[in-house]
Design a protein around this nucleic acid. Structure first.
Lengths: 218, 218
DNA sequence: TAATGTGAAAACCTTCACAGCT
DNA sequence: AGCTGTGAAGGTTTTCACATTA
């Protein structure tokens, strides 16, 4: 065995810490305690300290954490200190909204290619990117060094696209199609599904609970 | 004390079951076992049976579950057997994509009003819906009986909007802004944040694990 | 026979509480 | 004096395994 496996839930929380630390940095804070960070994110200080302890010892006892240092470390751990190239599959309405979404590039995620199986779309330019046919997928993924694919195709085409992506060499998939894709081990998958979010939310709208109602932002 | 509290993770999975059952129904399946459902969703049969057992006894021993019956029951439990009215806050690029997204209405989620604090946007029609000023929020939420708000405003405006929504009487919030909102207990909150999803995914792209890499589709 | 429903066990995650460092 | 880092405790979720029943 090598180093202990990091719980998935912990990895899901690290980007939240990075975001909070970025805010603090912009606000001019030099040091932060787990207490403060916790109240900012509505989490317990103990959870934050425990999460960080999986990766090292970043704080100074009696003082807290250097905002800038901790932020840098977490960004390095998550691989956010470099650029990631992504391609988009499907340039319908949703795909176009994704390619024009201004939130990806500033965070280091660059959409550098777009594909569509509809030959009427191929050749068009969407958000400044030429739409290529699916037959070009593997070649472009390899030549450009694309790591991530963003899938915005109709549900009934999603599994086939996933299969093509996996064999093209993409290593991570951000899936917007409302399906539960079958993906081999070793490929990272994240699903974005607002309908699913609403459908679990309504449970709590029917029978308001006593306790707090919230969700992991993921 | 009344009936035992249902774990949140269980509620998050119910819509997945509903979706799989809908597919099975369309494929003409009359009966399904937890085994089959599990392989469709890449979950263990035991987990599915346990999840369902929180709500009742829906199966027949030796046979499995009636696809149609189980689907109906789960839809009733989640409150999906009725319409839900939603309003949209923020009609920028993202907001327009949301209002034009064709996936909500067929699932019973109807966006019936849109608001924006930018008075240049007010009065326009987006996706067939008139954009109203924020000052109209409370009146419209009450008169139309709106339960859910979808937030698509810039990060720096999000918390203020949340506060307005809470006092307007909305009971659930689907948040697309990249922030961790402070919300009082009793309001249901779901966050949609593709950047956060990518930022946790890259961890696994750096150091490919031995185990499977996946995420709750939420 | 075949698959559910469920207590009990195991695994996992969060919180506690305090030793130890600055 | 104050806050981290962390074993241990506590709580929650998943998995097991089998009695039960159609």
């Amino acid at each position: 065995m090598e180093s202990d496996q990091i719980p998935d839930v912990v990895v899901l929380r690290l980007p939240l810490y990075v975001r909070a630390l970025t805010q603090l940095l912009e606000a001019g804070a030099a040091v932060v305690s787990s207490q403060e960070l916790g109240s900012l994110l509505q989490m317990t200080p103990a959870q934050i300290r425990k999460d960080l302890s999986y990766f090292g010892r970043f704080g100074k006892q009696g003082r807290g954490y250097s905002v800038e240092f901790l932020r840098e470390e977490l960004r390095r751990i998550l691989g956010l200190d470099r650029r990631w190239l992504a391609c988009l599959i499907g340039v319908g309405r949703l795909g176009q909204a994704i390619i024009n979404y201004p939130g990806f590039a500033p965070e280091g995620f660059n959409i550098v290619a777009a594909f569509d199986s509809d030959l009427d779309q191929v050749g068009k330019s969407v958000g400044g990117i030429d739409v290529l046919p699916m037959s070009e997928l593997q070649r472009v993924v390899e030549s450009e060094g694309i790591d991530i694919a963003i899938v915005a195709v109709p549900a009934h085409k999603a599994q086939k696209v996933m299969d093509q992506l996996v064999s093209s060499g993409v290593r991570g998939i951000l899936n917007y199609a409302p399906v539960a894709p079958q993906i081999p081990m070793g490929i990272a998958l994240r699903n974005i599904d607002p309908v699913l979010s609403l459908q679990s939310m309504t449970f709590y709208l029917l029978s308001p609970p006593d306790g707090p109602v919230a969700s992991m932002p993921a």
